[in-house]
């Protein structure tokens, strides 16, 4: 069963890399620009290279995104993670506001925080099978603390949240699509989780159908 993943295109930078990497993980990838595109997908990825001011461009898709997050596995990458929060020091305007808190500018001298960093994993299905988690980061803003944090990293001496996980809602501050074998493993974990969710959904649908059929038979 091939998993249909929609990558949300809201005009923020290079979404080709995420598409290429997810295709490598055997997903059937499409680019979503409308709410309808999101409905057709089994799972959603919100990528992002750019600034929080892109939240404005996301406004049109806000409702369909919130709607699909409540039903389908979802992965936010980099800016796509920050946009799940209420607001950012980078730009005004509220984003999706699923997690509470503010995205803050990192304090270290050399910004953006670019390069390979170790990640300390606290929990999380996304990291399953990754023995030494090292990922590629490229950002100047981050979330400092969250009860849904699944891993942390450091920029200079400053700790920040490297990933979030809650049910089937995932977000990573780093770029798995640029993190070599570690990144591909993480993305294929996401594909696996989403495929299982899709299977369960299909099983549930078919058992409901059977129940209705047998209820009808008994009634008659």
């Amino acid at each position: 069963m091939e998993l249909k993943i929609a990558i949300i295109d809201y005009g923020a930078g290079n979404i080709g890399s995420a598409a290429n990497a997810l295709r490598k993980c055997r997903a059937d990838v499409s680019i979503a620009k409308t709410g309808k595109d999101l409905q057709k997908a089994d799972a959603i990825v919100l990528p992002g290279v750019g600034s929080f001011s892109c939240a404005k461009r996301l406004a049109k898709l806000r409702k369909p995104i919130l709607d699909s997050i409540s039903k389908k596995p979802f992965l936010g990458i980099c800016l796509g993670m920050q946009l799940l929060f209420e607001e950012s020091e980078e730009a005004r305007g509220s984003a999706l506001g699923i997690f509470s808190g503010k995205v803050r500018r990192l304090k270290c001298k050399k910004l953006p925080n670019v390069g390979w960093r170790e990640v300390k994993v606290r929990k999380g299905r996304l990291f399953s099978g990754i023995r030494s988690p090292i990922f590629y980061f490229c950002h100047s803003y981050a979330i400092k603390e969250s009860e849904n944090a699944s891993s942390f990293s450091k920029a200079g001496k400053e700790n920040f949240v490297a990933s979030l996980e809650r049910e089937n809602l995932f977000a990573v501050q780093f770029h798995p699509e640029k993190s070599g074998a570690c990144g591909l493993k993480l993305l294929s974990n996401f594909v696996k989780i989403a495929t299982q969710a899709k299977k369960r959904q299909a099983e549930l649908a078919s058992s409901v159908q059977q129940m209705r059929a047998s209820a009808r038979a008994k009634g008659a």
Binding site: G16, S17, N20, A21, K24, C138, E177, K178, S179, G183
Partner: peptide
Amino acid sequence: VAQEIFIP
């Protein structure tokens, strides 16, 4: 390169 290599 972008299609087959997954590092910056």
